[in-house]
Each structure stands twice: as structure tokens, then as C-alpha cells.
Write a protein that binds this DNA or RNA. Structure first.
Lengths: 138, 138
DNA sequence: CAGCATTCTGGACTGAGTCAAGAGTTTGGC
DNA sequence: GCCAAACTCTTGACTCAGTCCAGAATGCTG
């Protein structure tokens, strides 16, 4: 699987380094993790990384479309490796837990606004706010 | 119109102060403004405010449902007074300009995921990413 | 108009994220 | 295999949004 990551990186003209492979692995292993969490995970895998390397790597991955960055209101940046499919997120207002949710309306849903304001829309990001099962007290 | 704001505040058990009225006026006058922009607007209206008063007031208004806070990935917090209706946002990836867009799918759209994961969903927030007319160079 | 609760002010502080320069790795050509 | 050039990582200083706190000021109720 590291081989697959290497191919991905090379395919985008990026050098293959232990840091990058570890960051990609961390994002895959723990979806919706914050930069700090990812840094910790990478450290426990390869010993040490600088914060800057993680930020840098995440930024490049996002730019290349390998991962997605999400930042709901009131949260710090989070990353996930599910790209290309059309899924959205459920966020608990109380505990901030975030879960994936597949869009029920087909391939690229909610893009019904496409024609407005002269914008050229390339992505619809949907966040559902509510209470998770644990937090909605009975 | 200040009277209406006063009624709103009192109705929610809040004291009426010049700062609060001015903050509400600023949010109404300039939708999608950042805290800094709002602070500037308030200052030019009533002379001076502390940053803390603005943060505090905005926080209370959001909590009471008088305004809405939005924070797309990579942006600082922004506020708007359009609440209750169901509209979404178009954000330009290049210049970060943000415009309102009415949902084309009816009253509370995109809530088709309602049944999943045991969440109790109360709001669907939709952000369309793309290029605004100015930024999509021809 | 007096007293109390709420709100505002000012200043110090936190923490995510950025910048920049130099050291260390990768990589592709020899 | 080896070397230079390009890329990437490290380190440390820095920015900036947002928070915390204690004391002063203001709005509200009787």
C-alpha cells in the first residue's frame, strides 16, 4: 500500500519521502483528524516530524486533490482522503464529532444552483448540523 | 428600525446597549462581513467599541438565533442576518467573495439524509465552491 | 434614583497557521 | 554507483483570530 502511495505522489510530480507517505497513511487511517492529531500519528509512526512538514504536505495534497480539507464553523481544519465520490458530513453541535454520509440524491447532488450569479461551480459541500445519538439526551 | 432591534433583544432577555444595536445594524448592512470589518463599521457608527464587546455580542446573537455564523474552509468567521429562510452560499476559490443563493429545491432541501446515523439534524449548510465571474479569466 | 446584574473595556494570553533561511534528501543524468 | 540540482524538511520567529480575566461602566427594576 505504500507502493500505491508512492505511485500517487510520483504521478503528481512529487518526491517520495517518509514524511509524506506517513502523512498520507495517517489521513487514511483516521478520517476527519486535525493537523495536530495527524502530526501525533505521524510521529508515532516515523519518530518525528516538524509541524511545518505536516502543514506543507497536507497543503500540497489538498492542492493536488489527493485529500480534502474541511473546516466547519468553530472547528479547526480537518482532513480526509475520501475524494472523488460525493459524500457529505454530519457534525454534532455538542461534541463536534463528524461522520461521513453518502448523498442520497445521486451523483452530484444539490448542484441545482449551477446557473446562478455567473459562477463556475466545481463542488458542493454540504454540512448537516445536529445532535449525535450520544448527545441528544433522552 | 432600531426599535425593532430593541424589541428583538428584549424578547430574548438581553439588555439593550448602543454596542449591541450597532453590531446588529452592521451585520444587517454588510452581509458576510468578518469580525474585523464589523468592528470597523461599529466604530464608525458609535465612535469606539472593544473587540471583546463585538465578539461577545456576535456570540450571543448566534446563540439566540438572531444571526448566523459561517466559516468556509480557509476563511475567518463571517456573519449574516438572513436566518430562517433556506439559502446557501457561493464562494469563489480565488478571491473568496461570497454571495447568497436561494436553494432551488424547495423549503429544506438536501435534508434527504435525515434518517442516517441516528443524528437529529436541524440544519443543512451548503457551500458551493467555484470561480466568480471576475476570477474565471477568459 | 439606588442597587444590582449585566455588559463593556483593556490588556494579557492561547493556539492554529505562516514565513524564511539553512540543512538535509531525492532524483535523474552521467 | 555517484553528483549536482532541485526539492523537502527543520527550526525558530512571527502573525492574527479568538479567548480569558478583572475591574469599570452602563442599563434595568423597584
Amino acid at each position: 500500500m505504500d507502493l500505491a502511495v508512492e505511485q500517487q505522489l510520483k504521478g503528481h510530480g512529487l518526491q517520495v519521502t517518509v514524511q509524506r507517505v506517513a502523512v498520507m497513511a495517517a489521513v487514511s487511517a483516521r478520517p476527519h483528524a486535525t493537523t495536530e492529531e495527524l502530526t501525533d500519528d505521524v510521529r508515532s509512526n516515523i519518530g518525528s516530524v516538524s509541524r511545518q512538514a505536516v502543514y506543507d504536505t497536507l497543503g500540497i495534497f489538498v492542492e493536488k486533490g489527493l485529500i480534502r480539507k474541511i473546516q466547519p464553523t468553530g472547528s479547526v481544519a480537518r482532513y480526509e482522503d475520501r475524494v472523488g465520490d460525493n459524500h457529505h458530513h454530519l457534525v454534532c453541535r455538542t461534541c463536534s464529532v463528524m461522520v461521513d454520509i453518502d448523498c442520497a440524491v445521486g451523483e452530484t447532488p444539490c448542484l441545482t444552483a449551477e446557473t446562478d450569479h455567473g459562477f463556475e461551480i466545481d463542488e458542493a459541500e454540504v454540512v448537516y448540523w445536529g445532535q449525535c445519538p450520544q448527545c441528544k439526551t433522552p
